[in-house]
Write a protein that binds this DNA or RNA. Structure first.
Length: 259
DNA sequence: ATGGCTGCTTTGAGCAGA
């Protein structure tokens, strides 16, 4: 079986646990990066996920943010778990990294930024600058590295349903896109764009205005790969099926396949 | 398309998300 790495912003792990368990049962990904768990660690549903066959690493907080990495119990136990960026002191839980049999996996929930020019936007750009500095070292240490998560950035016009409408707005402003390009300049590859993809491929749709049905979406969830890992990547796709269910997350999972 | 969803919070109006 080829190795698969997935990322999914579940927008509350408590509410989405039934969807997640169903999805794990259907797809059995080897590594799953989760964002917006919105749970303190003592309330993480570790027993249910262990029963589904996964080890859990998690860094959560009440109400907001929170990241986790699930790894199939058949794989070797994870090592070198890192919570948050060592070069960016932060109360918010937005990064979790671990090493799995020589593969470095980093799960990120990049700040949303709220609106261009706001304090939260400034925090987003500073967070992204620190991420880049940290990744430069990580890439020097780990030949095979995957950076997966909710980046809250649509990199290109084709990642936005209406680029003219979104131009200059948060999630698609030039400074944010430049910060995304800076990650690619470290050598990382956008796994989704290694392959031919359908038009209007997005990972997030607003809950309002029937946005999903109208295909009013953005591609803001990504899996970036070091050169050695990109060379082994055989497929990458967005699974829109969970977005069609009742009480869905507003994000869809992304899955990359290797070998 | 932008009030118009959803999830959260010492439970209920307001914040945050994207």
């Amino acid at each position: 079986m080829p190795l698969t790495i997935a990322t999914w912003n579940v927008n509350s792990l408590k509410v989405r646990l039934p969807h997640l368990l169903d999805w794990l049962g259907r797809h059995a990904p080897d590594v799953v990066c989760l964002q917006e768990t919105k749970l303190p660690d003592e309330r993480f549903p570790e027993n249910e996920l262990q029963s589904a066959g996964y080890r859990c690493a998690f860094a959560g907080q009440k109400t907001y943010n929170g990241v986790a990495i699930l790894t199939r119990r058949e794989t070797v136990p994870p090592a070198d778990v890192q919570v948050n960026l060592p070069n960016f002191p932060d109360e918010q839980k937005r990064l979790l990294a671990l090493t799995l049999d020589g593969l470095r996996v980093a799960c990120v929930y990049v700040p949303n930024g709220q609106s261009v020019g706001s304090e939260k936007y400034d925090y987003k750009l500073k967070w992204l600058a620190a991420l880049k500095d940290w990744l430069r070292d990580e890439l020097a240490r780990h030949e095979k590295l995957a950076l997966a998560g909710d980046f809250n950035i649509a990199p290109e016009p084709r990642d936005v349903h209406d680029p003219a409408l979104w131009e200059g707005q948060v999630l698609f402003s030039e400074p944010e896109r430049a910060a995304f390009r800076a990650l690619l300049e470290l050598g990382l590859k956008d796994a989704f764009r290694l392959f031919e993809q359908p038009e209007r491929s997005y990972t997030w749709w607003d809950y309002r205005n029937l946005a999903f049905r109208r295909k009013w979406g953005l591609r803001i969830d990504h899996i970036l790969l070091s050169p050695a890992l990109a060379a082994q990547c055989s497929a990458c796709r967005i699974d829109v099926e969970p977005r069609k269910l009742a009480q869905p997350s507003d994000h869809a999972p992304v899955i990359a396949t290797f070998g």
